[in-house]
Simulated scan of single mutants.
Amino acid sequence: MPGTTDEGYAEAVRTVLGELPDLPHVPELPGRGVTAAMTGRALAVVDGLAADLQPAGWRLTDTSGVDQRRARSLLAQDLDAVEELAQGYVGTFKTQVAGPWTLAATVEKPRGDKVLSDHGARRELAQALAEGVRVHLADLRRRITGVDRWIVQVDEPALAAVSLAQVPTASGFGRHRRVDAPELSAHLEWVVAAVTEAGGEAWVHSCAPQTPWSLVAGAGVAGLSADLDVLGPADLDAFAEVLESGRSAALGVVPSTDPDPDPSDARLTERVQRWLDMLGLDPEAVGDRLVVTPTCGLAGATPGWAARAVRLSATVARNL
């Protein structure tokens, strides 16, 4: 969500709880700085690994630096706000964390270059993330006791680049070697298993084209989440199989930045119906497992459009 202040965070929580009573979530406001952005927030969750912020970005270190400590403090402060404002809430709730491959592609080793470049380092980071997610979800369960279904969205915007050897090296002149499918799947499976063992559901989200959705679907996830515009024919098959197998799919159809013209809920509803028709799926049969979302995060939107996008998503879902 957009916003640069703690007051803005509380307002985002109120918006989410008010407009999305069936599926609210723990908001993120990356506009508050790197400690509140996706990588910083994930490094606040990882267990047993220290990090600090360097000129080139986040780097693993021997001891936690001031920026990692700030990230953890800010996360705890945000969860305090969610806990206070969600008192009495009963139902489903969602949180999110950067996935193991996005972290490996954005965090550096102690001596430089991405964690992605080292087999042992990326394994250690994925396992630390899995353990941290387990602890994080237990903390959320203690804070919001009325939630009977926790969804953990594992954000993997860099998964496509990792699988296609498109992540640049530190020099910028080369690319890191592609990671083989078995390892890609294994690291995802560790995080998914940690979520499941903690009593939650793991959904993987990416709005990047060429994400290997069939591989993701085979990693034991309970749901897939993507921008409908970037799904190719093979991707559509993966989403259809997930829905038919009783799992969930979240479709990004509402623009994530201020559009011109403003799309109507009827037009967006019709678009999802056409997608379901193309796959031969009955909206009544899969409706309880289908989620309507913005195309990607709303951090780049104006506050007015962010609130409108949230309402529009809920309206399209009700229409369906």
Rank of each mutant, 00 (worst) to 15 (best):
V13F: 00
T15F: 01
T15I: 07
L17S: 08
P21Y: 10
D22N: 07
D22P: 00
L23M: 13
L23Y: 14
L23F: 12
P24I: 09
P24D: 13
P24M: 06
P24A: 14
V26C: 09
P27W: 14
P30N: 09
G33N: 11
T35S: 09
T35N: 04
A36P: 01
A36R: 01
A37F: 09
T39Y: 10
G40F: 01
A44E: 02
V45D: 02
D47H: 08
A51T: 01
A51M: 06
P55L: 10
W58P: 05
L60I: 15
L60C: 13
D62W: 14
T63K: 12
S64R: 07
G65I: 08
V66W: 00
R69E: 03
R70V: 00
A71V: 07
A71Q: 07
R72E: 04
R72W: 01
S73K: 06
L75P: 03
L75Y: 05
A76Y: 05
Q77A: 15
Q77Y: 09
D78G: 05
D78V: 03
D80H: 12
D80R: 14
E84F: 08
E84Y: 11
E84S: 15
L85G: 14
A86D: 11
A86Q: 10
A86C: 15
F93C: 07
P100D: 04
W101D: 03
T102I: 04
A104R: 02
